[in-house]
Design a protein around this nucleic acid. Structure first.
Ligand SMILES: NC(=O)c1ccc[n+]([C@@H]2O[C@H](COP(=O)([O-])OP(=O)(O)OC[C@H]3O[C@@H](n4cnc5c(N)ncnc54)[C@H](O)[C@@H]3O)[C@@H](O)[C@H]2O)c1
Ligand SMILES: NC(=O)c1ccc[n+]([C@@H]2O[C@H](COP(=O)([O-])OP(=O)(O)OC[C@H]3O[C@@H](n4cnc5c(N)ncnc54)[C@H](O)[C@@H]3O)[C@@H](O)[C@H]2O)c1
Lengths: 201, 201
DNA sequence: GACGTTTTGTTCTCCCGTTCACAAACTCCT
DNA sequence: AGGAGTTTGTGAACGGGAGAACAAAACGTC
């Protein structure tokens, strides 16, 4: 989030910023921001603030997005199409090297300038491109088996969009994005709002 | 997550489950699960476990997804199309009542059986359908102004996909889904893995 | 009806992230 | 050069979530 805020400040032509300003753009408390940054090193100047470009680079280096990370996307349906077409990944240090789908009808289709390839090609693509990050956008029932194949092929980080809990060996990271649950959380708070207003009225 | 795990168990024909089993399907610790459920009430039976269907209904009721929540999606680009076509929302208590876009070329297009309508129609759609949840899938530059319009129209919960911090009045909930940050988190751990293995070798 | 077994509900403790608050460090002005 | 003003970096206090552990409750068996 700080990286994003800094990039945005740099685009606006800002060269220097205080922890207060940066915290405001990132939407957090300034003390938290300073403590977070202090774990990376002492990149600020007391009485002055932080150099936007310098700090931006330091954070990018710490995260590891100064290099380009190759990524494969498996499951080129509704969501897979959107992800493949998204330009924001490229500009933030990620490069989609392959789109894979089990459906023979989709194989050969071209999405965002890339051919959709057969799921069987996973192993060779991962090996050839040194891919360590995989995205799962298949239906939930297929997700675990896709994850297993990914892990066997050498992928060690998975971003999962399917609404299912994946089990993977130690050493493999999984993050999941669950849009239905996000909506349900909103609905819960929404319900509580209307309940409490009913009590008032 | 528990709701999803219970639905999945119910689909498998399971009628009763222990906290241990349910925790395993949800991917959490069983003590945590029991404590979480205890906030809702005492729905289990000691020595037996939980009745799957009964507990499922109780959680759904608590969250507020026994009723259908009307939702509007603004920004029918790559991501908006995917969201509109997603059937999982409907089955989890949400109903997409309108798709809105500022681009006149998109207006009139039909996506997932719904006409894409002009962004100007927001106020009347929200009022007519009693919409309280809005999804933002526009570019980042437009997100804040869309959010402002939503709030003015009466929406009080926003799910934001644009990579930007939204500021909204008190009483309005915002949740954001940031896919680039998810990938960056994976990349960070990935980088640390390779650094530590280099030290070993 | 008493006893052993199973499983929940809850207490207690630990740990970690967040925030406050302030000393240290830097700049600028006189 | 020195003092006033500003802003960082960090020690200390706070709060809350997570897990271990156990008492209470239900069930089955004899
Ligand atoms: N579309 C959304 O907006 C959205 C929102 C939330 C969650 N999701 C989740 O994301 C996932 C994908 O959603 P979608 O709408 O794109 O579904 P989809 O059905 O449109 O696409 C799924 C794709 O995966 C492919 N596939 C199926 N099994 C496969 C396998 N074993 N190996 C490789 N590819 C396989 C299918 O051929 C298809 O192209 C689902 O799990 C869904 O629940 C989607
Ligand atoms: N596509 C993805 O997979 C993906 C991934 C991560 C994040 N995002 C984010 O989601 C958002 C949408 O991404 P996308 O790829 O669908 O972009 P897109 O450009 O394909 O679609 C954006 C849509 O929003 C509409 N729009 C623009 N300004 C508007 C306004 N003021 N009011 C209403 N509609 C307006 C445009 O006409 C367009 O149809 C972006 O902020 C993007 O950063 C997308």
């Amino acid at each position: 989030m700080y990286l994003r805020a800094l990039t945005s400040l740099a685009d606006d032509g800002t060269t220097t910023c205080s922890s207060e300003e940066l915290a405001a753009s990132a939407g957090v408390n300034s003390a938290k921001l300073r403590k977070d940054l202090s774990y990376l090193g002492s990149y600020g100047t007391r009485g002055v603030g932080y150099d936007v470009e310098y700090l931006r680079y330091q954070i990018a280096r710490e995260i590891g997005v100064t290099q380009d990370w190759p990524v494969v996307i498996v499951g080129i349906g509704n969501l897979g199409h959107a992800l493949a077409n998204y330009s924001g990944f490229r500009s933030r240090g990620f490069r989609v090297v392959a789109l894979l789908d089990a459906d023979r009808d989709r194989t050969g289709e071209t999405v965002a300038g890339l051919d959709v390839r057969a799921f069987e090609d996973l192993e060779s693509i991962v090996a050839d491109n040194d891919v360590s990050i995989g995205v799962i956008a298949t239906p939930a029932v297929a997700a675990q088996s896709v994850a297993d194949r990914m892990v066997a092929a050498g992928i060690t980080s998975i971003l999962n969009f399917a609404p299912t809990v994946l089990s993977v060996p130690d050493g493999v990271d999984v993050r999941k994005v669950d849009l239905s649950i996000e909506l349900q959380i909103l609905a819960y708070h929404e319900q509580r709002k209307s309940v409490s207003s009913e009590v008032v009225s």
